[in-house]
Write a protein that binds this DNA or RNA. Structure first.
Length: 914
RNA sequence: GCCCGGGUGGCGGAACUGGCAGACGCACGGGACUUAAAAUCCCGGGGCCGUAAGGCCGUGCGGGUUCGAUUCCCGCCCCGGGCACCA
């Protein structure tokens, strides 16, 4: 019988849909299970990362359903965002049309994968039915003081007169559209006070331990970055100003030899005004302003600073200390100013060496003396204080406290806790996002849009040109409104929200997607939440997951839901934690070659000619004097793009005979492995795979290739194996259909018993893998192993046939979460009238697992020398007797003394001789 | 520079708590079937030495702990990802 996957897959997708198998509703008497995969951005087509993510989720959802849970498994669209707007700028299509047609297309693709979603709960964040609740939540936050207005620094293109996202700024810090060097600019923005929740977000990570991957917890912890230290005041008497610094090492206070301010610090220009350094400082600040943020913060830039021409006074010694400004001090961390202790901080040390500033040792290791002039690097360990007045002789830890107390007593400082975490800027100068529901009135200031007027709808006719501050500003009927308070002329806020806002609570909306009076129905959220299993890419380890945790806590505090004392996830509920368990799936990578690497490999540059390139690649002669750089420019190829783009151009491609083969050779030689992404053109289209091998085989392969959390490199050959396996199983089951016709009686033979043991061992393993470890690759391997045993099994008795029949039945059930369509088909083929998707997962028969005899390796001094067969329940004495009587073992023990005999029950034997 | 991962056959990976290294699959080689090819089925396989039995070596490199180390400890090398120089 032929494995016609197309017919099979279409058939069962239709039946599941017709029978509403995956519809969900709260059932108070049933245990619930909420499994959720991160919703996709509707970029146009699904990619392998999606297939992997959603296959993992589907296996879990189907398995839990078979385990008797009331499963919620929804899907939707993270539908606002920059690409829609970019598409509009490039080709004039409206973001709404672009997005909605992408959604329609991708939904079909997802359906073809046979995923068990309850599509009745589908949401799209770009629809007013959804985003009105963003606005509603924003207004609540405004009321509670969580949303506030402040200045933010943004990438500004002076030529397009527009704000750029980080990804719209290229590696050299230039605008993606016009190539102008990007500047930093301060604009008014809306912020959310996530820092108010810093302590709670940090503390509740404890609750997530054991449920979330450890690296994610670590990353969030580092991101929040709590540190305890002191705020210290340094006065600048000649200017009548005070510089406040934050330090984690108050114990090194006596070693301060200079102070450094961030260039943006308000005192930087103020202090230098009127000194001989005034001009130099102005130039420096201007230069930094023109430097891209990313460069400044990833250590790519050399440490650079300028003297401000003034001195501060040390709070305890009253020494005069020079004040500098430098590029490595950030305005938005701490106070924007640092006290520098070059002897005990490596960065300060380097800066002091560069600018010839004094170095003063104030901490020494025990029993050792450090000399400033001999130091080659900073001594950053704790130690004993020296040269520190009355604090000399104290240990670092003790001194931190004592010095802080002294400062407090003198009114020159105080103990302080700082977080690295900064408030969340949600204003975006974009069109395709949620309008921020406030009105700016000259008389009344900032006035919230009244709740009954929500949603503030996006106007459809905003001009999208990529220029100008915000597209909404150019729609007069949107901008000009009457102030809700005084009725006078006023203007709407023309920014839209960061799309992370949309995705920070969508999992709550799924609980009651059609609710019209609130973001969600409290009683439904109280039934379905907390998400039992969340699955998504590791790249969201910090931002999305942290913001969602923050939102759930805020919504709890607003009173939108409360914990039921009987809820099984009560603890998580009370803490306002949205996701109990998290699985971070690894990326799907593929090998590719960048233009940069290609040119390097052939010793060419952008100035080389096209004929030189062709010559290098193929040995053929042509006459084309155009430079590679100019060719690239004409074809919109950049140095970081995939070399395919360059090789496929008409000027080059026609000289390469077998382009496909040529490219794969090139990848082998010069390729690098990285995440599949559109910009690198190293993608494999899931549609092609489904078309050629079917959804079942595609799912099976992607789950089999590697454990879910590991990255893996996509190899197209691998899927053939998965396809072959399914075809074999299908053929085998079709062949053995007869077994299901009558009843079979009698006892199985020894071989029959062995097979039955294998069946239940496999069932046990697969159940455990699906229940706890999520190691789908080994679960699938175990199923394949079982199938290998089944296909070589020759029944000798009727009892044996009964065993084989049971084996087939269990095999089909075990396959069903992974390859649901072919499993349903085989289930039907073997005479079942139920839907497998609604069947229960079978129980392991423990009695079938018992083995009478086991094989043990026998080691002599740790090396395997023989294998022995012993009764499964044999005690150590019996095992020892059998082991030592083995001829092969004797060979190695003869004439030697047995000093130790180790028997690890059921595992191995080790004889130690001397 | 800092943080987080990772390094096991030709390849993807397995080995769960310190206990048989290489399960399962891919690719490959040999054979069967076929006029032939494809498909399918059977067999083989870490390296070195050996006709074989068997022996030695082997989980990035160098040490250590242990009866026993892919797993634990110390030092180093390489690859991938992230980053906000965090005072």
């Amino acid at each position: 019988m032929k494995y016609s996957f197309k017919d099979i897959e279409r058939k069962w997708q239709r039946i599941w849909e017709e029978k509403g198998v995956f519809k969900s509703s709260p059932q108070k008497d049933k245990k619930k299970y909420y499994v959720l995969e991160m919703f996709p951005y509707p970029s146009g087509r699904i990619h392998m990362g999606h297939v992997r993510n959603y296959s993992i989720g589907d296996v879990i959802a189907r398995f839990k359903k078979m385990r008797g849970y009331n499963v919620l498994h929804p899907m939707g669209w993270d539908a606002f965002g920059l690409p829609a707007e970019n598409a509009a700028i490039k080709s004039g299509v409206h973001p709404k049309d672009w997005t909605l047609s992408n959604i329609a297309y991708m939904k079909e693709e997802l359906k073809k994968l046979g995923l068990s979603y309850d599509w009745d709960r589908e949401i799209a964040t770009c629809l007013p039915e959804y985003y009105r609740w963003n606005q509603w939540i924003f207004l609540k936050m405004l009321e509670k003081g969580i949303a506030y207005r402040s200045k933010a620094s943004v990438n500004w293109c002076p030529s397009c007169q527009t704000v750029l996202a980080n990804e719209q700024v290229d590696e050299e810090g230039r605008c993606w559209r016009c190539g102008t060097t990007v500047e930093q600019r301060e604009i008014d923005s809306w912020f959310l006070k996530i820092t108010d929740y810093a302590e709670e977000l940090l503390k509740d990570l404890e609750l997530l331990k054991g449920h979330w991957p450890e690296p994610v917890i670590t990353m969030q912890k580092n991101w929040i970055g709590k540190s305890i230290g002191a705020r210290v005041k340094f006065e600048v008497p000649e200017k009548g100003e005070t510089i406040e610094v934050f330090t984690t090492r108050p114990d090194t206070l006596f070693g301060v030899t200079y102070i450094v301010l961030a260039p943006e610090h308000p005192l930087t220009l103020k202090l230098s005004a009127g000194t001989e350094q005034e001009e130099a400082v102005k130039d420096f600040v201007e230069k930094i302003r023109r430097t891209e943020k990313r460069k400044r913060t990833t250590g790519e830039l050399e440490k650079e600073g300028v003297f401000l021409g003034v001195y501060a006074v040390h709070p305890l010694t009253e020494e005069k200390i020079p004040v500098y400004a430098a590029n490595f001090v950030l305005m938005d961390y701490g106070t924007g100013a640092v006290m520098s202790v070059p002897a005990h901080d490596q960065r300060d040390f380097e800066f002091a060496k560069k600018y010839g500033l004094p170095i003063k040792v104030v901490i020494t290791p025990e029993n050792e003396e450090l000399k400033a002039e001999e130091l080659e690097k900073a001594y950053t360990e704790p130690g004993i204080l020296v040269n520190s007045g009355k604090f000399s002789g104290m240990k670092s830890e003790e001194a931190k406290k004592a010095i802080t107390e002294e400062l407090e007593r003198l009114g020159k400082g105080k103990r302080e806790v700082q977080y690295r975490l900064r408030d969340w800027n949600i204003s975006r100068q974009r069109y395709w996002g949620t309008p921020i529901p406030v009105i700016h009135c000259k008389k009344c200031g900032i006035v919230p849009v009244p709740e009954r007027e929500l949603p503030v709808k996006l106007p459809e006719n905003a001009p999208l040109t990529g220029e100008g501050r915000s597209p909404l500003e150019r729609v007069p009927e949107f901008v000009n409104v009457k102030c809700p308070k005084c009725g006078g002329d006023a203007k709407r806020d023309c920014d839209t929200m960061d799309t992370f806002f949309d995705s920070s609570w969508y999992f709550l909306r799924y609980c009651s997607p059609k609710e019209e009076t609130l973001p969600f129905k409290p009683e439904e959220a109280e039934y379905w939440m907390v998400v039992d299993q969340y699955i998504g890419g590791i790249e969201h380890a910090v931002l999305h997951l942290l913001y969602s945790r923050f939102f759930t806590k805020v919504l709890r505090d607003i009173g939108l839901f409360k914990a039921d004392e009987n809820h099984p996830q009560k603890e998580f509920f009370k803490a306002g934690e949205p996701f109990q368990n998290l699985l971070t799936q690894g990326m799907v990578n593929k090998r590719w070659v960048s233009v940069k690497n290609l040119l390097k490999a052939y010793n060419l540059s952008e100035e080389s000619t096209v004929s030189e390139l062709v010559k290098a690649l193929t040995g053929k002669d042509t006459e084309n004097g155009e430079t590679i750089g100019s060719l690239m420019k004409r074809h919109h190829v950049t140095i970081g793009d995939n070399a395919i783009l360059l090789l496929k151009t008409e000027e080059v491609g026609k000289f390469i005979d077998n382009l496909e083969e040529f490219l794969s050779e090139l990848e082998k030689k010069y390729g690098e492995v990285s995440k599949m992404s559109k910009s690198k053109l190293n993608t494999v289209d899931p549609d092609d795979m489904i078309e050629r091998y079917g959804a079942d085989a595609t799912r099976l392969y992607i789950l089999f290739a590697a454990p879910p959390e590991a990255e893996f490199e996509w190899k197209t050959e691998g899927i053939e194996g998965a396809y072959r396996f399914l075809r074999k199983v299908f053929g085998f089951v079709a062949d053995k259909r007869g077994l299901f016709e009558g009843s079979l009686k009698g006892a199985p033979s020894k071989k029959g018993k062995d097979l039955r043991r294998k069946v239940h061992q496999t069932l046990k393993k697969v159940t455990e893998e699906l229940e706890e470890r999520f190691k789908f690759n080994t679960a699938i391997a175990a199923i394949m192993e079982l199938f290998n045993a089944m296909s070589s099994f020759k029944p000798e008795t009727e009892g044996d046939k009964a065993v084989l029949k049971e084996a087939i039945e269990k095999l089909i059930v075990m396959l069903s979460p992974f390859t649901p369509h072919v499993a349903e088909e085989m289930w039907e083929m073997t005479g079942h009238y139920t839907l497998l998707a609604k069947e229960s997962w079978p129980e392991v028969d423990e009695s079938a697992l018992k083995e009478e005899e086991i094989e043990l390796p026998v080691q002599v001094n740790g090396k395997v020398r023989d294998r022995i067969t012993v009764p499964a329940d044999a005690d150590e004495e019996t095992v020892k007797e059998i082991a030592l009587s083995s001829e092969k073992v004797k060979k190695y023990t003869e004439g030697k003394t047995i000093v130790r005999f180790i028997y690890v029950k059921g595992r191995l034997v080790n004889v130690v001789v001397r």
